[in-house]
Write a protein that binds this DNA or RNA. Structure first.
Lengths: 341, 341
DNA sequence: TCCATCACATGAAACGTTTCTTTTGGCTTT
DNA sequence: AAAGCCAAAAGAAACGTTTCATGTGATGGA
């Protein structure tokens, strides 16, 4: 248990009032009457004793922890920590606490985390999910229960059973493709997330389609895990070949960093010998010695929208249709791209 | 509230037993007595109904949330997320949940976070604190209350009132100094944390002392904030001068990255024109295009020790003297250092 | 003068568990 | 056959709040 065990009862006693009176005064500020004098007494008593309500009791009685859960894929990826911070600020402003959980890499764990999380008795959940279809049954169940749930995922997997916030990579990818082609690139590799179903919302195929419309350009899709180390390995294998691409688009900024390192390992310069583009727009990308070009997601707006959806559900409770918000991404050109050698 | 409101009572009814019987069977697995037959009935009833205990009620009655709090300086710094993950695994194995909080940069907020955290009714806290002395009064109070508390901080600020886990940078710094001197460096800059009291545990002065013992070497101490952006600015100012150092040791790996970028901004190469060393040993450092030399802290061992200290306090409860664990750091040489031009 | 009315305050139930104490009835012991 | 004992299970109190339903004593209208 936490601090010195000061109960509401103690405060009430010291103020010479009943415990419910103290309760009304301390919380229900709005709509409470009570004479100024007793209010005064209760407040000073509480302060003097250093009273803090017992969260377990509050939660038990009022049915809410005032806590919302955020489930991210990997807390060690700056994209998620950055998102977490922005999101945390948003909901803190509404008086909610944040509990962050991180599932790592595999689908089984993702499912398990999701289910465990629901039973932590949080008031609502925002979760990054790799693939809507894998969780559809579960999410439908939650929606039916009216449990406030918002997912962040990729568009294109059909209507989500719960509110969803999604980036739309088409504009960003279009921008990348056009710019790289314009610079003279014709041979591309797209590093795709190892397929957990259609995790990447058709990013590879969309990119292929765009590139396919350009004369003489070709794109190869290679799978990789989402972390630097693996991308470095995969990148090395790609770049060791005789016929290597002149530009690589990676599945996220972290893997793009891995690819840049792979280039370095082989004595290739970025961007002279290889152009690299990431996805996400993590702040770190801008600070690298060769700053990373990227397709940036609007972190802040997405976090705000997720918070808004969730709070609406929690407070409005309305079990109307699920809502979707799709955010455009945009290509940010930095030092990591240049014309091919 | 979470899932479908299945109470222990419902389980008990379905199993045809009293609620306390169900409780005993479900939790007190060890030491419980009850016939195999009823055990069986209770378990299947619970499973069929999808029963999950209400955490608020459990916490209220048994006085513990089975949750421990981790307070870090900045969740966007990979050092802390990495630590969090390792630490989280450690305590998860003991059946505790983890709640992470992040104070950002300034002392006021640090104090506030610390105090708020205590009132979240967690079972114990592990906190990174910038400076023991700033929190001494508070920590002594917690120690007196017997509240399980472990701090991670720098050594040298006198005996900690609560259990403490600390890195000892003397070996690491010694290693850096020797190696850089050996490579031919004579002019150093030490990027120090902007002084919140003696935040850095005498790192700058210790480094000065070591360097002072080498013939013809000099070191200058410059302050910076802990984030990349500021370090980049500060680094630029240092490197723009006519008399610039040939080697910079930064207060953490992130700021070292900022310094490397500052060099790039000015057209200086790392390591040809400038050697850079960080502190912490974040995994990212190894993956940069110019991999970062660093003074590595033993994350894993430190996290394990912090977990051990805390669990001991929580479960042992013993209010004996506070313990300290000091971990050696060690210098890891990577590509970011070389002989001066 | 009497009864509504009002402002202010209180008593007590309830939230879902855990845990301390008590009951039951079948079995051994004498 | 009565007393005692034990395993197995039930009863009920308690944790610290919030909230619903009451209670009070003054005020004002009739």
């Amino acid at each position: 248990m936490a601090a010195g065990k000061i109960r509401l009862k103690d405060v009430a006693e010291r103020a010479g009032v009943a415990v419910n009176t103290a309760s009304t005064i301390l919380n229900h500020r709005p709509n409470s009457w009570a004479s100024k004098k007793t209010e005064e007494r209760v407040f000073t008593a509480a302060k003097e004793l250093g009273y803090r309500p017992n969260r377990a009791a509050v939660a038990l009685r009022s049915g809410s922890f005032q806590t919302i859960g955020l489930l991210v894929a990997d807390l060690e990826n700056p994209y998620f920590t950055h998102f977490s911070r922005v999101f945390g600020n948003q909901i803190a402003a509404k008086g909610y606490d944040l509990v962050i959980e991180s599932w790592q890499t595999d689908l089984e764990q993702e499912k398990k985390s999701l289910e465990d999380f629901v039973h932590r008795n949080v008031d609502g959940i925002v979760a990054f999910v790799s693939n809507l279809d894998e969780h559809r049954e579960f999410l439908e169940h939650q929606a039916k229960l009216g449990f406030p749930f918002v997912v962040l995922t990729m568009p294109g997997a059909g209507k989500s059973p719960v509110d969803a916030v999604m980036p739309d990579f088409s504009t960003g990818l279009q921008g990348v493709a056009e710019r790289l082609y314009e610079l003279g690139h014709r041979s591309f590799t797209f590093l795709a997330a190892r397929s957990v179903g259609q995790r990447m919302g058709g990013r590879p195929s969309f990119f292929q389609k765009i590139i396919g419309e350009f004369d003489g350009a070709k794109v190869e899709v290679v799978e990789s895990g989402p972390q630097i180390e693996e991308a470095r390995e995969v990148g090395r294998r790609i770049l060791e070949r005789v016929e290597r691409p002149t530009a690589i688009v990676a599945l996220n900024d972290l893997t793009a960093i891995g690819v840049m390192r792979a280039a370095k390992d082989l004595g290739l310069g970025v961007p002279e010998d290889l152009s690299v583009v990431g996805i996400d727009g993590i702040p770190l990308g801008e600070q690298l010695s060769v700053s990373l070009s990227t397709i940036a997601q609007p972190h802040k707006e997405m976090a705000a929208k997720a918070a808004e959806f969730l709070i609406d559900r929690i407070e409005g409770g309305g079990s109307d249709l699920s809502k979707e918000a799709i955010f455009e991404t945009n290509f940010i050109e930095r030092e990591s791209i240049a014309p091919p050698a």
